[in-house]
Design a protein around this nucleic acid. Structure first.
Length: 199
DNA sequence: ATTGAGATGTAG
DNA sequence: TACATCTCAATC
């Protein structure tokens, strides 16, 4: 069996993350099959989450209804997208980390000239956004079909799923809330967090 | 193949 | 001042 949007609000966010693997994300002429995601919770439950300390202007979308995009800017130049999950009022989101292009390959290549291989077109959260031509304008938009990006369930469930610590976070390294399709070549390379040197 | 640093803006 | 990152150059 596969999952539908109806499952998103009621499901625990880590389970929602697993079920989102294999879903198809379409925007600006490119469709990608999700191969890697991370779950984030909120309000004291998850120190690594933007929502850990409560509602702010940046993270307020995480507290809203499921099925919308939470887009944030990171390191001043990149954008990352989350699917909001959980019930309204409770922060929960799934970071979209990687995907495999299944349609619009020419557009995808044009948007990511740095990619040496097609498997690197969306092998990372900011690469995925660039490849789809999305930025902060997509924040707080619907994924159900009436927004710039559309997320649809797959025809058949994804294969075996692996789990491990989330990438780039400095806390909660013991929480295995990163999920990926086992053996998929588009999954982003794990690189341990390297703190920046002070000036 | 793996490693280090710089680019860059803004939330807290 | 740290950050849910990416790219390039240098090194192994």
């Amino acid at each position: 069996m596969t999952f539908s949007w109806l499952d998103l609000p009621a499901t625990r966010v880590d389970e929602a993350a697993r079920m989102l693997l294999g879903w198809r994300l379409t925007a600006n002429g490119v469709t990608a099959r999700l191969t890697e995601v991370e779950a984030y919770s909120g309000l004291g439950e998850d120190p690594a989450s933007h929502a850990h300390r409560g509602v702010t202007e940046r993270n307020r979308v995480m507290f809203g209804p499921a099925g919308r995009l939470y887009v944030y800017q990171i390191y001043g130049m990149h954008f990352c997208a989350n699917v909001v999950c959980g019930e309204t009022g409770r922060a929960a989101a799934v970071l979209l980390r990687a995907g495999a292009v299944v349609d619009g390959i020419d557009l995808a290549r044009a948007r990511r000239p740095a990619a040496r291989r097609d498997s690197d077109l969306a092998a990372g959260p900011a690469k995925l956004m660039q490849m789809l031509g999305l930025n902060r304008a997509a924040n707080d938009t619907s994924l159900l079909g009436d927004g710039p990006a559309v997320l649809a369930p797959p025809d058949s469930p994804a294969g075996p799923i692996s789990a491990g610590p989330r990438v780039g976070v400095t806390s909660a390294h013991d929480v295995p809330w990163r999920f990926w399709i086992t053996g998929d070549p588009t999954v982003s390379a794990y690189r341990r967090h390297t703190p920046r040197k002070p000036a």
